[in-house]
Write a protein that binds this DNA or RNA. Structure first.
Length: 498
RNA sequence: GCCGCUGUAGCUCAGUUGGUUAGAGCGCUAGAUUGUGGAUCUAGAGGUCCCUGGUUCGAUUCCAGGCAGCGGUACCA
């Protein structure tokens, strides 16, 4: 009977790819969101919030990825039979918002947004099916000054949350250059039949950093078999085409001007190439004028950003420091954000081209990075002062003590459990309480309260070997008149700060 | 989707060449200490040994199939 009842109970399990976020991470991420938001406001962006789900057609679930439309999105049916989907990024809702309010918006429209997004994909290490993103976008201008500003914003945002210059790099490229190279290689970006080949090439280039040049060459040519024995189909290019592409993606160097000079002869034969070069040169000029040199923002011809809809500059933020994982192996964080220019996204609602550009960060990855850097403790808080319940007949008095401390701006709570004093002390210890407030029979008769400093107590216990000795001896506690409770607690806290 | 590895206590894992009562460390609860946490000692609670079927007198152990988790890879707005 009991066994049957047990097996009939639901398992307290979390759907795969989802997770709970505890106090420290929650506070840390809130802190990051606030900091990045303030930087965005400083740059002139306005906040916007949109719903978690939208009608599926409005999200463009049939649009952006020509390969696999509609897959990977969580969807549900409204009671009138209309399909809705959870948002998979913050850009599609922005496009819907801009299209719906087009005439009322002051253009260029500049918005930042933070929110949770969902993707129905296989989760992996550090990849979840629900995660928080931060986005900043400028809609309604074709000027690459908007793109340059996003790079500056990204750079400043990362530094604001504690990732210093040198620990990250923003890489910039231009899809027009990639198109130019593809044209040089004889792959026409306008030709429908060549689209698949084009995407395969772009995906291959995107893997350069992770898999290395040999693997990319295989992917551009006949295909590649990875260590697990899985075969990836290649683009089927000829050696000459592959050489051309590999020559292009390998042409980056340490200075922006130098990189541009190296790229120029490879792409300037055609229109798209000249445009792309010119745009990057202008971004370089603006970035330099604003004080963002190549230690923060570089030009890297190997940056692709898988998305089909990017039309101009693309960028990616990468953390460059290495850390040692739990298994002892070196671990790299890689990309924590990216974006680019997408001049076609609003068009599907309005029929008119609306140039736009945007950047987004993955906040969970940023948090993981901060933890590794030891900077995530921005989230930890000192625990509450615990008022012990010594005598239930006087519970009102204990509640008042807690309230007095709260009114003085201190975290405090009266013990709400039902256990005895010993258990209450353990509770206070586990909550990270800086001190506890005790008033039993003795103190009450004298109109006093005892304040026990738990931090000091821990220190003393390190010095005293014998158990009975430290119990009897200095208990790191003081008795003060009730009226001096708040003052005395403040003093204890102040002493702990030093 | 494809390939590989792994499923034993809340967690990390040992173990059973197929045999009666399945273990450790950590954690948890309590006592030693009738009003004092964290050290120490002691005790206690906690298990469908992933599921289903097969072989067997007997399966947590062997076999098959499932499922789940992890890792890689593909895809990734």
């Amino acid at each position: 009977m009991a066994k049957k009842a047990k097996s009939a109970r639901p398992k307290a399990r979390l759907p795969k790819g989802l997770r709970d976020v505890g106090a420290d991470e929650f506070r840390a991420v809130e802190g990051m969101v606030g900091a990045i938001g303030r930087v965005s406001e400083k740059y002139g962006f306005e906040p916007l919030e949109t719903p978690a789900f939208e009608y599926s057609d409005a999200l463009g679930k049939f649009l952006p990825d020509a390969d696999r439309p509609n897959a990977g999105v969580f969807s549900l049916e409204d009671d009138d039979g209309q399909w809705m989907s959870l948002r998979y990024d913050l850009t599609a809702p922005l496009a819907r918002y801009v299209a719906a309010n087009y005439d009322a918006l002051t253009k260029p429209f500049r918005r930042y947004q933070t929110g949770v997004v969902w993707r129905n994909e296989k989760p992996g290490p550090g990849r979840y099916r629900e995660f928080r993103q931060f986005d900043a976008d400028t809609v309604g201008t074709a000027s690459v000054a908007a793109d340059a500003e996003l790079c500056m914003l990204a750079s400043e945002a990362l530094e604001t949350i504690g990732i210093d210059t040198g620990n990250y790099i923003i890489r910039v490229n231009n899809r027009k250059l990639l198109d130019a190279v593809l044209q040089q290689a004889g792959i026409d970006p306008q030709d429908e039949a060549e689209q698949i080949k084009r995407l395969t090439v772009l995906r291959a280039i995107d893997k350069l950093e992770r898999l290395g040049p040999q693997a990319v060459e295989l992917l551009l040519g006949p295909g590649r078999k990875d260590a697990s024995g899985d075969v990836t189909k290649g683009a089927g290019l000829e050696a000459k085409q592959i050489d051309l592409i590999m020559g292009f993606v390998g042409a980056g160097s340490d200075g922006r001007t130098k990189t541009l000079a190296a790229l120029a002869p490879l792409v300037e034969q055609n229109e798209a190439g000249r445009e792309g070069l010119q745009e990057l040169a202008q971004m370089d000029e603006l970035l330099s004028a604003a004080g963002f040199d190549a230690t923060r923002v570089v030009i890297d011809p190997a940056i692709v950003r898988g998305l089909d809809y990017y039309t101009g500059p693309v960028f990616e933020a990468e953390l460059t420091f290495e850390s040692v994982g739990e298994d002892g192996a070196d671990r790299q964080f890689g990309s924590v954000g990216g974006g680019g220019r997408y001049d076609g996204l609003v068009e599907r609602f309005k029929g008119v081209k609306v140039p736009a550009t945007g950047y987004s960060f993955g906040l969970s990855r940023l948090y993981a990075a901060l933890s590794e850097l030891g900077r995530a403790d921005v989230g930890s808080l000192v625990g509450p002062v615990i008022v012990l319940v010594m005598d239930r007949d006087h519970i009102g008095t204990y509640q008042r003590f807690a309230m007095d401390l709260r009114q003085a701006g201190l975290r405090s709570e009266m013990y709400l459990g039902e256990s005895g004093m010993r258990a209450q002390m353990k509770y206070a210890d586990k909550r990270g309480a800086p001190c506890v407030v005790i008033q039993g029979e003795e103190e009450r008769s004298r109109g006093e309260v005892t304040i026990k400093d738990l931090v000091e107590g821990t220190r003393l216990s390190g010095e005293i070997e014998d158990n009975t000795e430290w119990r009897e001896g200095g208990r790191a506690q003081i008795a003060v008149p009730e009226a001096k409770l708040v003052e005395a607690v403040r003093e204890v806290l102040a002493r702990q700060q030093t």
